[in-house]
Amino acid sequence: MAAGLTMARPEKKRSATFWQDTLRGYLFILPVVLGLLIWTFGPMIASAYFSLTDYRIISDPEFVGFQNYVDLFQDKAFFQSLSVTIRFGLMFVILSQIVGLAIAVLLTQKVRGLTVFRTFFYLPIIVPAAASAVLWKYLYNKDYGPINGVLNGFGLSSVNWLGSPESALFALVLMAVWSGAVTTIIYVAGLQHIPEELLDSAKIDGANAFQRFFFVTIPMLSPTIFFNVVTGVIGAFQFFVPAFIMTEGGPVKATYFYNYNLYEKAFKWLEMGYASAMAWALFSIIIVLTLMIFRSSPLWVYYEGETR
């Protein structure tokens, strides 16, 4: 009888092994638990508080409510840097998908020697941002740069790539596409996952290469495209080093990126409260953009196993 009762309610008191397992589990993940608390969540709370203060490091933070956020909406530099970043993001995301996908298609053809070609196309990712900024500053030079040299060779006139507000942002887009081989790598992996039977059966049904690409490959690849678009948008908001080294945000703020603006506010003018508000505004913008892309995804992203 007593035995039957204990059988019915076996775990009133947690067993010793339960606590042992819990302790052991947390000992294993202790580094990341502490890391998240110290380097992520703690600073997040502090940053949220700073964004509500006037804080210039030399004196203690002074609470000002939502004043920083109100100021943001009247700050021309804020909107300029936002517009620069969004325009850059659009151009970069679109161009790098086209270039990355085109190269990835070439790199997954059935021809010999592809490993060598992959190395060539992937190599730019390992070039440090500082080195590639210095390098492209030279390539773009209006007086003696090789790019204008090539243009002149074809009878075209020189372009003041980084020196004119019309071309500076686009010049940085081209450079970012060159450095952005990660997009290509992800597309190659995505293309390799498309089952060959699918393309073969489309071929038997009489689909030509273009039809196979647009009606089989692209839909099958849409989750990969989706991933690359999201990371590309986030990447645009982190863009900093080339704008810092090559153009210093200019000419006339044509490359005054959001992140560059934030950096100047925080570390040049020591407006830590205002810069914190900018960081939270950035976070909200990224969340909204990501949600928008996510919400739109049922319209254009196809996941295998899904029925229509």
């Binding site: 993940i29 638990v33 490091i57 976070f283 990501t290």
Partner: peptide, 22 residues
């Protein structure tokens, strides 16, 4: 904790930059 770890990837580094500097 695993979800929190993954979620932290989404957080732009600018948010923690200033408090960490301080």
């Amino acid at each position: 904790w695993f979800t929190l770890t993954l979620a932290s990837i989404m957080l732009p580094s600018q948010v923690t930059l200033i408090p960490l500097y301080i």
